[in-house]
Amino acid sequence: MFHRIRRRANGPTEAQRRFAELSARLHNQVPPGLEVPAAEPRAVVDDFLPPELRVPSHDQVDGKMMPWKQPLVLDGEMVACAECGAYRDWLILSTRDQIWLRCRADHQQQETRLDTAWYNRNSGPADATHDTFEDCLRHLGH
C-alpha cells in the first residue's frame, strides 16, 4: 500500500504524460464533420404577433370594466345605488385610478373605498377589447 503512494509521488505515469501531450495537440481543434458553417446573412423577420392578435397595453386603454353579479360588501356595509337602491348586478369600471360602479339602470357613482389594486385582484383576464364605451356595455349585456 505504501509502495503505491510513493510511486504516485514520483511524478505522472506514462499514461498520464501521453494523455497530457494528446490534449495539448487537440486543444482548439474541431472534430471532423463539426465544422462551423460560415455565417450567412439572414433576413430580418418581425417575430412579434400580427396586429390583430396584439393586446393593447394599459396605457393604450382608457379603462377596464367587469361585471359583478353578487352584492358588493365594503367595510361590512352592502353598497347600494344612490339613485335607485339597486344592490347587485354591478358593472365595475376602472379608469384613471378611480373605481366607478354602474347599476342596471345606468346610474354611475364613484366608489372611493375601492382602488385599482382591488380591481386588479378581483378581475379576471380580459376577454375582449372595444373601441367605444357603448360597445363594451353591449358586450357585457348592459
Score class of each variant (00 low, 15 high):
12 P>C: 03
63 G>L: 10
119 Y>C: 05
98 Q>F: 02
85 G>Y: 01
44 V>F: 06
107 H>K: 05
44 V>K: 09
12 P>N: 15
23 S>N: 11
11 G>A: 07
134 E>G: 13
61 V>Y: 01
81 C>G: 04
26 L>P: 12
71 P>E: 05
137 L>T: 02
64 K>D: 15
140 L>N: 11
91 L>Q: 08
133 F>Q: 09
10 N>Y: 02
97 D>H: 00
122 N>F: 14
129 T>F: 02
135 D>V: 00
118 W>L: 02
50 P>H: 02
33 G>Q: 08
73 V>A: 09
72 L>R: 00
83 E>G: 01
127 D>W: 06
72 L>A: 04
29 Q>P: 04
106 D>G: 04
79 V>P: 02
139 H>A: 15
74 L>G: 13
13 T>D: 08
16 Q>K: 09
44 V>Q: 10
43 A>F: 00
77 E>H: 03
133 F>K: 09
65 M>F: 11
106 D>S: 06
12 P>E: 13
25 R>C: 15
75 D>H: 12
52 E>P: 08
64 K>Q: 13
134 E>M: 13
63 G>V: 01
114 L>G: 03
132 T>H: 09
44 V>P: 02
26 L>Y: 13
140 L>E: 12
32 P>D: 12
64 K>C: 14
103 C>R: 00
60 Q>S: 14
36 V>Y: 03
102 R>A: 04
106 D>H: 15
5 I>N: 12
10 N>A: 08
21 E>H: 08
58 H>S: 14
77 E>N: 13
15 A>D: 09
1 M>W: 00
122 N>P: 07
124 G>L: 05
27 H>I: 03
115 D>S: 07
138 R>G: 14
59 D>H: 06
90 W>Y: 07
1 M>H: 13
37 P>M: 08
10 N>K: 00
118 W>C: 05
47 D>W: 12
37 P>R: 07
1 M>K: 09
140 L>Y: 10
6 R>Y: 11
99 I>E: 03
126 A>T: 05
11 G>T: 07
47 D>V: 12
69 K>D: 02
22 L>D: 13
33 G>R: 00
135 D>G: 10
93 L>G: 02
131 D>W: 03
36 V>N: 07
27 H>D: 15
120 N>P: 03
11 G>F: 09
131 D>F: 03
11 G>Q: 04
18 R>A: 14
34 L>A: 05
124 G>M: 07
24 A>C: 06
32 P>T: 11
63 G>P: 10
126 A>Q: 04
41 P>D: 11
78 M>P: 08
49 L>Y: 00
